[in-house]
């Protein structure tokens, strides 16, 4: 195995990891505030992809230019979803199984609705930079992936500024640290929940739009990314946004480097085995620290 192969694998891993980071951050921000795992995160990404597809095929909009529109649509959709449905099944003192079932049900609803509307065909969009590549230090790189990666960086920075500087951002952080304390201070939990879920949906939508530039969409595309998002947040600790960012990049590299070790056929198994090990080891360490 020479250095170039490994370098190329790392670069590819980072590019793939960019999408994982986005979806992971979107999941983790929702968890941070509401303490529930959203089992339809992958489907939100899928909706973002279809959104981009429609904007592109009906209005001829370049997928990258569509990103702000997709983000706004998904934000509003997320706010509606949270305030109409999900909030009803979150009860204090009860365990989170009902939210699990509800969001899993929503996931089925989204993917099957898209199947009804668009059929099961794979669909892709025309992007301005399709098939263009650049070379960085000997590693070939598709322009679309590179731009997506830059968008990830920009979005992460924006997200941080939003959480640090804006009023609602501060409220989100306060609620995620201490729900009761925040509501005592006069923060409206309902509003924060809705905004957070909207934010999570919007980020997932942006991830979808980026993915759309070099991948294709079909109704079940979300399930792969949904599962990946769980792994990302586990690597980076649930609720931790920085963790989500790096967790995604680590997972991407784990996949591409792992493929070199165990052949690409079994890379999935490797990823899942690593995931379970990380999860269990983390829990053990935590239990030890507490005792």
């Amino acid at each position: 195995m020479n250095f170039n192969v490994i370098f190329q694998a790392i670069v590819n891993g980072l590019m793939i990891g960019g999408i994982y980071s986005l979806i992971g951050m979107s999941l983790t921000i929702i968890f941070g505030v509401m303490k529930v795992i959203n089992f339809c995160q992958g489907e939100l990404l899928m909706l973002g992809m279809y959104c981009t597809y429609v904007l592109n095929s009906k209005l001829g909009m370049d997928p990258f230019l569509a990103i702000p529109i997709v983000a706004v649509i998904m934000f509003l959709f997320g706010v509606l979803l949270q305030s109409l449905l999900i909030t009803r099944s979150i009860r204090d003192g009860d365990d989170d199984t009902n939210v699990l079932f509800l969001t899993a049900g929503l996931g089925i609803l989204f993917s099957s609705s898209m199947q009804v509307i668009f059929g099961t065909n794979y669909r892709s969009v025309e992007s301005h930079f399709a098939n263009q590549t650049v070379s960085i230090a000997g590693a070939a790189l598709s322009v679309n992936r590179l731009i997506s990666f830059l968008i990830l960086i920009a979005l992460t920075v924006l997200l941080f500024l939003f959480l640090k500087k804006t009023r609602i951002g501060k409220q989100i952080r306060a609620t995620s640290q201490n729900r009761t304390g925040a509501s005592v201070c006069g923060i409206q939990a309902k509003l924060v929940y809705a905004c957070t879920y909207g934010l999570g949906a919007a980020i997932a939508g942006v991830a979808g739009a980026c993915l759309m530039t070099y991948y294709y969409v079909f109704p079940n595309v979300g399930s792969v990314y949904g599962t990946r998002s769980f792994i990302v947040v586990t690597i980076g600790t649930l609720g931790n946004i920085v963790g989500g960012f790096f967790g995604g990049l680590v997972l991407g590299c784990l996949e591409t480097l792992g493929a070199l070790v165990v052949t690409s056929a079994y890379k999935e198994t490797l990823v899942y085995v690593c995931f379970v090990i990380i999860l269990v080891v983390k829990q053990r360490l935590q239990a030890k620290r507490r005792a």
Partner: peptide
């Protein structure tokens, strides 16, 4: 030792690994 949804996540992982 994993609580709630974390346990569910590992079962997903096992299922997917077997599928692979």
């Amino acid at each position: 030792g994993l609580k709630g949804a974390y346990f569910s996540l590992t079962t997903i992982a096992f299922g997917e690994a077997f599928r692979n």
